[in-house]
């Protein structure tokens, strides 16, 4: 529903300002203060990386496409704005989000297949489809049946032809969009802002053979270029970047938002280095076991 993002439930009900989002979460944590204190969890982005790995593990054998995976990630993020994670079995929530996302993205998977993959991913787990079926009710109810997700991929496709991105730039921008689901950005900004940020970063940072290597110089020049656009005067050094900056300055795109997205992504890449799967796994297992959420 590209033409209608502005009237969408995503815009109306699921896009927050940063302070709003922080407040929502604080409220949630306050309501479960004891449990929250008893079971500390890793950085939210580390958890998101872990969740992403688990979702991919389930998705790969089933041949589930990226967009359904992305939708599942957004469902999980929305859900945990409404329900304190320590009250749930994340394995079940992830499997259910994936099951639901596949139906919404028109690539349905049988509930038994999703259950089988979920069991494969977590050593001991729920073993009944009715668990997923029931969790689906919870998920839909917490999201108020607002299940249609507007992704930045479509905006990127439009930008790609407008700016004639190279194959490398396009695939780098695509993977930056994939990465943004590991942050809160899907709850903070419109999909086209994300797409513009991804394209901008892809052009400025330039794809290298080793994939995306965020180096200080690249980041500095990205932010500087954005600063120029903010000032309305294009002073960039490279042609392609210049063209983008000029376009940004003239467009109605919220440059502050693009700067914010850039910084969010940069800090994701920084914190990624300290990601440890085992820590996430153990800390989740701790509250799941202790609270008997596993069943």
């Amino acid at each position: 529903m590209a033409s209608s993002y502005w009237d969408s439930t995503q815009k109306k009900f699921w896009t927050f300002s940063k302070p709003q989002l922080a407040l929502e979460r604080k409220r949630l944590e306050d309501s479960e203060r004891n449990v929250v204190n008893m079971y500390p969890l890793p950085d939210r982005r580390h958890l998101s990386i872990y969740f992403y790995h688990q979702l991919s593990k389930m998705a790969r054998p089933l041949g589930i496409r990226q967009q359904a995976l992305a939708t599942a990630q957004v469902y999980v993020r929305r859900f945990y704005v409404r329900v304190e994670i320590r009250r749930t079995n994340p394995a079940l929530v992830l499997a259910t989000a994936l099951y639901l996302a596949c139906k919404m993205e028109e690539c349905p998977q049988h509930i038994r297949m999703v259950l089988a993959e979920a069991r494969h991913c977590w050593d001991t787990s729920f073993n009944d489809i009715s668990k997923i079926g029931e969790c689906e009710f919870t998920l839909i109810s917490e999201m108020n049946s607002q299940l249609i997700i507007h992704h930045p991929y479509r905006s990127l496709a439009e930008l790609q032809s407008q700016f004639q991105l190279t194959q490398e730039e396009n695939s780098l921008a695509w993977s930056i969009i994939n990465d943004h689901y590991l942050t809160d950005l899907p709850l903070l900004h419109a999909p086209h802002v994300i797409a513009i940020t991804a394209m901008f970063l892809a052009v400025v940072l330039k794809p290298t053979q080793g994939g995306l290597q965020v180096h200080a110089a690249g980041v500095a020049s990205a932010l500087q270029a954005l600063g120029n656009a903010r000032g309305g005067a294009g002073q960039g050094t490279q042609n392609r970047v210049q063209k983008l900056v000029d376009w940004l300055a003239e467009s109605t795109v919220d440059i502050e938002a693009v700067v914010e997205c850039t910084q969010e992504l940069i800090s994701l890449y920084e914190i990624w280095d300290s990601y440890a799967e085992k820590t996430c796994k153990d800390q989740i297992a701790k509250f799941v076991k202790a609270r008997g959420l596993e069943k």
């Binding site: 439930t9 919404m104 509930i111 489809i129 009715s130 079926g133 689906e136 009710f137 839909i140 249609i148």
Partner: peptide, 21 residues
């Protein structure tokens, strides 16, 4: 008597009905 997963068409209808005005 058990939850068995909601049909895709019901999911579509719920999502579209919520979205459209």
């Amino acid at each position: 008597l058990q939850y068995s997963g909601i049909s895709q068409s019901a999911i579509r209808e719920m999502a579209l009905c919520t979205e459209l005005a």
